[in-house]
């Protein structure tokens, strides 16, 4: 199996979560919201490219909107391979995390 970087993993998960509404802006917003940190605009495009290259996601073109100066969106959709990859990651992580408990404060 191929391991993904943390960034790629988060982006892939977001695409999965956002279902049909995953495109550049919404992905970044969602990630920033969940992680509570500022993600720079450029930060998601590199992982997105990698994911496309590995065929974990596929893209399709949306309709141009006025808000974007007449430019169309590119939507991302997770593929079968993507789901499998996520499953693999989860399994590996579970193995690593097993038995971990935050020590309670006395």
């Amino acid at each position: 199996m191929k391991l993904l970087t943390r960034q790629e993993e988060i982006v892939l998960l977001s695409i999965w979560k956002l279902k049909g509404n995953a495109y550049g802006v919404s992905i970044r917003e969602y990630i920033s919201q969940v992680t509570g940190k500022y993600w720079s605009i450029g930060s998601i495009y590199v992982p997105l490219d990698k994911l496309v290259e590995r065929e974990y996601v596929k893209t399709y073109q949306g309709k141009p909107t006025e808000k974007r100066g007449g430019k169309s969106k590119r939507f991302y959709e997770i593929t079968e391979e993507g789901i499998n990859a996520l499953a693999d990651i989860k399994e590996v992580q579970n193995m690593f995390w097993e038995g971990f408990n935050k020590p309670a404060l006395d």
Partner: peptide, 15 residues
Amino acid sequence: QDKEIILGDIEEIYN
């Protein structure tokens, strides 16, 4: 290849 898409994303955020 990505020019229009990324420009579009940024314009959306800008707006």
